[in-house]
């Protein structure tokens, strides 16, 4: 069985036929080859599968494909435009806010969403917003530094 969903992904509107028992994460990675979104646990506990749904970071492993219908989805692949990194991506590069990079798409997306809603978050707000994404490499200090750098409040 398939259902048709009408969705916008990184600005491209598309109608796709999907198996409704797949998760949004599986659709993105396997049907659409957007493998920048990672799966670290499959049950909402590590945060590496975060994508933006209507601007909000959500764990895409817990969303069924059908809920992609009518949604505006953003994945890490959509952040850089015309070969230019967005300001969060650029700050991650400048500060070295990643190591293995596996959580980076989720971190970058979540930080981007935070800064859209709240362009001047303090450190506690940044930590709270990113508190659901694990980084086993422990890049946290530099991730925090990167997000604060974007606010212009960094040293």
């Amino acid at each position: 069985m398939t259902i048709r969903i009408d969705t916008t992904i990184n600005g491209d509107r598309m109608e796709i036929d999907v198996d409704p028992t797949l998760t949004l994460l599986e659709v993105l990675r396997e049907n659409l080859f957007l493998s920048g979104t990672k799966e670290g646990c499959g049950v909402g506990e590590c945060g590496t599968c975060v994508v933006l749904v209507d601007g909000e970071p959500v764990t895409s492993c817990l969303v069924l494909a059908g809920d992609g219908d009518g949604a505006n989805l953003e994945t890490v692949e959509g952040l850089a435009q015309n070969g230019e990194l967005n300001e969060v991506q650029q700050a991650f590069v400048n500060t070295g806010a990643f190591q293995c990079g596996f959580c980076t798409p989720a971190m970058v997306l979540s930080a981007t969403a935070l800064l859209r809603d709240n362009p001047q978050p303090d450190e506690e707000e940044v930590k709270k917003a990113l508190g659901g994404i694990l980084c086993r490499c422990g890049a946290y200090p530099k991730i925090l530094e990167a997000v604060i750098e974007v606010t212009g409040e960094g040293a």
Binding site: G44, G47, V50, V53, E56, P57, V58, T59, L62, V63, A106, S110, K128, A129, L130, G131, G132, I133
Partner: peptide
């Protein structure tokens, strides 16, 4: 409750 990307769902 849980974490931000879970609370958003």
């Amino acid at each position: 409750l849980a974490s931000p990307p879970v609370r958003a769902l």
